[in-house]
Design a binder for these strands. Structure first.
Length: 586
RNA sequence: GCGCCCGUAGCUCAACUGGAUAGAGCAACGGCCUUCUAAGCCGUAGGUUACAGGUUCAAGUCCUGUCGGGCGUGCCA
């Protein structure tokens, strides 16, 4: 945090310099109102920080930027941590920070330990991150895996950035898809009991359906073995989907409402539990599993619509209730209650949104698959209709992961069971490699997920590169122990013995970690953490190959051990954010 | 047709909310293990940022248009 402070202080000094120039008339009045931009430089030759003020103000001041930069430097107060200030390029002012400042960050890392990198842009605000939220109609596939990895890494990142994060999974436990699922299971159950069934081609095909059917038989025995006459000869319908609806109705008649609910509940419970286990194995755990059905049962949907109605945002047309979404920027108005009296999914979305606000969340982050982008405008419209602050509302779209196997696009239809499951991915490439792979992509980027490639690359996945750096540090400390080298407390280490250029570079990398966290959290971009880790690991591997640590004289050795210990700490802290382990041995 | 997202090295992707010479990893080529883990290091090569205009001191980034890809466009979820 040391030079982050320097950055802040420099920003203030520049501001003061501009005020002076304004007073002397060298810069027109009002220009000091502009926010000062000061940033980390990309290249070492440009120093540590750079500001573009003279470029930004040159035109207003009627001067050329380099000339103006010189004037700024002229009246700029000295900063004790800065060695050199120079004008470069078109008119940037570059600041070179004293290296003792940079080396001091090593102490900072070691004293803060697991807390190093924690920043406070969240102010402890309670926020909710909702992600995955796949319907519990089958196993999660690799597309869901991306959402899970992104949502969880983002949650961890925001926690490090000072938010109190509540992770939620919203699941649809009502509606036609669940009915189809119940039907599928029930038919398999009958089949297993020896009843002759014609299993529909558009029902759920997966093997897991048979497993649930078996558990249905274990729990309820023969209780649901009843079927009305003419079950499968339901008229002359040609339409497959209509046929399915007819079968669902026939199931209801065969079983009665209560037994049908029992089947459905068991199916649902089994599915949700499997998804929970699946995600848990992937390192993803939720604070809340929120049932869509509960919104209707509690009357939350009716209440939400009533409020909209009171405020004139609802009207009736063609027997349905419509929300005036077009008043808030959506393309058209949207139905909330259908002609048949049932609410739409959108109506449940609204009630859920209100529920979140009522629970006191300061910010609502939604992570949706990009195929749902069409519904963003209407939910945002509803949010505005309730008068909530738009800043509280964030929808992040995770682009599709197109799946390829052997160069061919693989469909991900859950009903046809053609997907590759998250579980298979976990088993084939491992959790660490899979999560790292997902974490390298920013959410808006469409990605091609070639399974063959993912498997073949599992050995040179960059995750091992980062983990290897961590294991190497651990190994050095094991060696030190074997050689009975005592490792001094950081207070007794003289860091000025770190005078190789490469170790200053490494320290600089450590120093930037909290700033990286700040930027990544601001942009909801956990992939920046992943890229940072690769850079840090690269800096360490170079260092390792260039410099001997244990063979150096004692004071240098102690300083180097402190440095690599700090590297190990930051690797751990960073890997924790993306949910990847930091192994001691490899 | 309309709307949203995207187009960066042979491949997969970065680029700090407009900054300086667009960077990594794979793949290719050439070097480095009698000393702390070679899952590593060092080096070479690879680009008109899809294309054409515009705004700006400055554009991969912002605006307009064209081409190409993905996804939407239900009183489905």
């Amino acid at each position: 945090m040391q030079t982050s402070k320097v950055k802040q202080e420099l920003s203030e000094l520049i501001q003061q310099a501009l005020v002076r120039l304004e007073a002397s008339g060298d810069v027109p009045a009002g220009t000091t109102e502009l926010p000062i931009q000061i940033e980390r430089t990309r290249q070492k030759t440009h120093g540590d920080f750079a500001t573009n003020v003279s470029l930004a103000l040159a035109k207003k001041a009627g001067k050329n930027p380099r000339e103006l930069a010189a004037e700024v430097i002229e009246v700029l107060a000295d900063h004790p941590g800065v060695n050199k200030v120079e004008i470069a390029g078109p008119g940037f002012i570059n600041f070179f920070v004293d290296e003792s400042q940079t080396l001091a960050s090593i102490k900072d890392v070691l004293s803060r330990g697991d807390h190093y990198g924690q920043v406070n842009i969240g102010n402890g605000d309670l926020i909710t991150v909702e992600f995955v939220s796949a319907n519990p109609t089958g196993p999660l596939h690799v597309g869901h895996g991306r959402g899970a990895a992104f949502g969880d890494s983002l949650s961890r990142l925001l926690e490090v950035a000072g938010y109190q994060v509540h992770r939620e999974y919203y699941f649809n436990d009502a509606g036609r898809q669940m009915d189809i699922l119940a039907l599928s299971v029930w038919l398999r159950y009958l089949d297993q009991l020896g009843v002759e069934v014609e299993f529909p081609g558009n029902a759920y095909q997966g093997e897991y359906i048979k497993d649930i059917a078996a558990s249905l038989a274990v729990k309820y025995g023969n209780d649901f073995n009843m079927m009305i006459d003419g079950f499968f000869v339901s008229g002359v319908e040609q339409d497959q989907e209509a046929h399915l609806d007819q079968l669902i109705e026939n199931m209801r008649q065969s079983l009665g409402q209560e037994a049908k609910e029992q089947v459905l509940n068991l199916v649902l419970a089994t599915q949700v539990e499997q998804i929970q286990d699946d995600l848990h194995e992937f390192g993803v755990d939720f604070d809340e599993w929120f049932s869509e059905g509960s919104l209707e049962r509690s009357g939350a949907i009716a209440r939400a619509i009533a409020i909209l109605k009171e405020n004139g945002h609802i009207y009736e047309q063609d027997g349905a209730l419509w929300f005036r979404a077009s008043d808030f920027g959506d393309d058209k108005d949207r139905v909330v209650i259908r002609k048949n009296g049932r609410h739409t999914y959108f109506a449940a979305d609204i009630a859920y949104m209100v529920n979140k606000i009522d629970r006191g969340f300061k910010k609502l982050i939604y992570i949706w698959g990009a195929d749902h982008h069409g519904t963003v405008a209407r939910v945002h419209a509803a949010f505005q209709a309730f008068g909530y602050d738009s800043d509280q509302f964030v929808i992040l779209l995770v682009q599709m992961a197109s799946l390829y196997r052997g160069g061919e696009r693989v469909s991900m239809s859950t009903r046809r069971a053609e997907f590759v499951t998250l579980e298979e991915l976990r088993e084939e490439v491992g959790v660490d490699a899979a999560r790292f792979f997902y974490s390298m992509r920013k959410n808006e980027q469409q990605m091609d997920f070639d399974l063959d490639l993912a498997k073949s690359q599992s050995n040179d996945n960059p995750v091992y590169y980062v983990q290897y750096a961590h294991a190497r540090v651990c190994s050095i400390f094991r060696q030190a122990e074997e050689q009975q080298i005592t490792v001094n407390e950081i207070e007794q280490v003289d860091l000025s013995f770190l005078n190789e250029e490469i170790e200053k570079d490494l320290a600089r990398k450590l120093e930037v970690f909290p700033e990286m966290i700040t930027l990544a959290a601001r942009d909801f971009a956990p992939h920046q953490v992943t890229y940072y880790l690769r850079e840090l690991a690269a800096a360490f591997h170079s260092y390792y190959n260039q410099v001997k640590i244990l063979n150096a004289d004692d004071q240098t050795r102690q300083a180097r051990l402190a440095l690599i210990s700090a590297v190990r700490q930051v690797l751990q802290n960073g890997l924790a954010i993306i949910g990847v382990s930091a192994p001691k041995y490899m």
